[in-house]
Amino acid sequence: MVDYAQEWDTDSLLRLIHDMSSCATAPVLILLLARSAGMWWQMLVSRVFRNFDMVPEALRLEPLVSRPSDRAPLFSEAVRQFAAALEVPVAPLACPPSGLQDNSAYDQVLTLHMSALAHVLAAVQDSTAPDDPDKLSAYLLARECDHWARLHERGLLRADPNAMAQIMYIAALTGPLSHADGTAALEAAPVELWEHPGRLVKDHSVCYAPSRPDSVLEPLYPDRLNEDFLALMAPGHDCAFPADP
């Protein structure tokens, strides 16, 4: 299975298909996940047919539910699972968002899950989760900032929330890097804190453990949260999230 297949170059995908098909002792299904089936797909289909005499098939990923009325059970199950993971009683949790039935944004399972998580977290804090799906990222990211502040106050981070937000902005743009490249990135885009880049990299790793032992500057996941963080950090929006000029 290849994730973000549209970001791979065609030769690499062809080499993968060749390696998988030439050494297989049983039928192999190669699944390419992509956001769109554009020109990259047309080029790949043509070359796969020419090189391997195979005809790849494009399958559109449909919404998880076919009717708006099916969203509520999915939301309730997501709430139950998040509550269990966070050891929160399910009983006091708020009702589903008012637009769950009518807003097409909830056709996306990620939006539905983000809303369920926000409702569980709101129950923990005795606050109210946003009804508007467009405000979910700002709500969840505000909790990230609060987490940085608490670690800073306890002396576990040298970087304050302002500096951590700037480090996260750089991480969102670069993705995971080697230690040398990560510190070089922080030097090239100076963070507003008189700390050595190596110290800032370590602070970042306290909050976001690297996916590989030899990398630093792990971005936020899922990707949508990372993308929304970039947008919210940039001035010009009216969301309740502080931009950074």
Rank of each mutant, 00 (worst) to 15 (best):
L64H: 00
D132A: 11
M39H: 11
Q42D: 14
P97L: 14
R80N: 05
Y106T: 06
A122E: 04
S12M: 06
V90P: 02
L29I: 07
D9P: 09
L31D: 01
D126M: 13
G99L: 15
P56V: 05
G99N: 09
V79C: 15
A5G: 14
I30R: 04
P133M: 06
V65N: 06
E62L: 15
S21V: 02
P89G: 06
L44V: 05
P27E: 03
I17S: 01
A72F: 04
Q101R: 14
F52L: 08
L64W: 06
A84D: 08
F82N: 08
A83I: 07
P27T: 03
D11T: 12
A84I: 00
A123S: 15
S115F: 09
M114I: 00
V28L: 08
A129Q: 04
A34K: 05
E87T: 14
A5M: 09
D70W: 08
S21P: 01
E7D: 05
V65Q: 14
S127W: 09
F52T: 01
T111I: 12
A83Q: 11
L33C: 10
Q108C: 13
A34Q: 03
C23V: 11
L61Q: 07
V45R: 11
L74D: 00
L61T: 05
D132R: 08
S98Y: 03
V55T: 06
Q42T: 10
V109P: 00
A118R: 02
H119T: 10
Q101P: 00
M39K: 13
R50F: 10
L117P: 01
V65E: 12
A72S: 03
L33I: 08
M39Q: 15
P97V: 13
Q6F: 02
D102V: 13
L44M: 05
T10C: 07
D102M: 10
S21N: 03
A118C: 03
I17L: 01
T10F: 01
N51Q: 15
A26I: 00
D131E: 15
L44W: 03
L136I: 06
V120T: 04
A85D: 13
R50I: 09
L110K: 04
T128S: 13
W8K: 08
L121G: 02
I30K: 04
S69H: 10
P68K: 09
D53F: 01
A118M: 06
E57L: 12
H18C: 09
D107V: 05
R67F: 09
S76I: 10
E77S: 14
V28F: 02
S66W: 04
L44Y: 00
A129P: 00
W41T: 11
L93V: 14
A116Q: 11
H18M: 07
Q81K: 13
